[in-house]
Write a protein that binds this DNA or RNA. Structure first.
Lengths: 171, 171
DNA sequence: TTGACGCCCATAAAATCCCATGATACTCCA
DNA sequence: TGGAGTATCATGGGATTTTATGGGCGTCAA
């Protein structure tokens, strides 16, 4: 297991602690801290271990250090980030900054995204999930409209599974 | 045998476990977990082993990582998925997410789809199967109307092929 | 001195392992 | 070729181990 996959909702205790899902801890290995940044697009936190931090720095290194672009990115990716210590039981304490940015109060949705994972306020996550599924459904259909080929290989809802193409009406 | 073929209905026990059909386990080899995604089109789960996961990631890798398109797809294929551990007896336990999405309660229809397979609530599966067969029949007819040639190559007998096709009596 | 934070222990619920059983399908031999 | 012996499989259930979560303490720093 080397990627963050799937999602789980965990509770935040009175001390402000939350358990990182066991499967995510497995990916992190023995690392004792998490690198977390505030998404500039959505009310979500994106986090990961050293590898995640590296990939961000990597991106910065490809920009001109004197550019405005670099200044902004670096500010967000490094300056406006958090280092969260992972305690003995595999829990972290969310900073005020994180809580304000996400709206998280007593529950956190951990969502695997491959080489990093996200922290959402459950309701926000649910809403976003629906938007995403909707968007994907539309993309598949527009693809399928003129070209069955491409779509045919896609599982997820396989447009091909129902040769008719009419087989919608899924209750 | 290296593809998932045919279908079977298995019981979900009190602990929420279901046996993966032996023939599917044979295809999975010694893998101990299943990658499962919620279809965006229908109340069905699509699952498979590492190969299945890879094919999805492969697809993602062809998109621009910064695009909205990529964001949506990766969210659904990775974040909104499940990793199901296969126990020593070749069983898995279905997540709440899966049960909600499919309507599965005490029985699961495993349907082979080649390089992946699906999990349906039996009644939904039955209904879908009939719609699909219906659709195919119509297509054949419309094809046959003006052109016998093409159709003639089709095995099609699907209509008569009771060997597996109408395998109703799900023994 | 008062918190915030790290570490340790406790515990209920959930996940996993291990062994048992009934039912089939399959083999092999008289 | 009939049929008993055997292997495979789906399924159950008890025992064990993980997990997530709660709470107690001591420490270090304002």
């Amino acid at each position: 297991m080397d990627r963050f996959v799937s999602n789980t909702i965990n509770r935040v205790d009175k001390k402000g602690r939350v358990s990182i899902p066991a499967s995510f801890r497995a990916v992190l290995g023995d690392q004792s801290k998490l690198h977390a940044i505030l998404s500039v697009e959505r009310p979500v936190i994106e986090a990961g271990g050293a590898e995640f931090l590296e990939s961000n720095l990597q991106r910065l290194s490809q920009m001109d250090p004197l550019s405005e672009e670099y200044e902004m990115w670096s500010f967000c990716l490094v300056g406006d980030a958090d280092e969260l210590k992972i305690d003995t039981e595999g829990r972290i304490i969310l900073s005020d900054q994180i809580r304000e940015h996400t709206g998280i109060t007593d529950q956190v949705a951990f969502v695997g995204r491959g080489h990093f994972f996200q922290l959402w306020e459950p309701a926000e996550f649910q809403a976003y999930r629906e938007r995403a599924r909707d968007a994907v459904r539309k993309m598949r259909r527009s693809l399928g409209a003129g070209n069955t080929q491409k779509v045919s290989d896609f599982p997820t809802g396989s447009a091909r599974s129902d040769p008719s193409g009419s087989g919608e009406g899924q209750s």
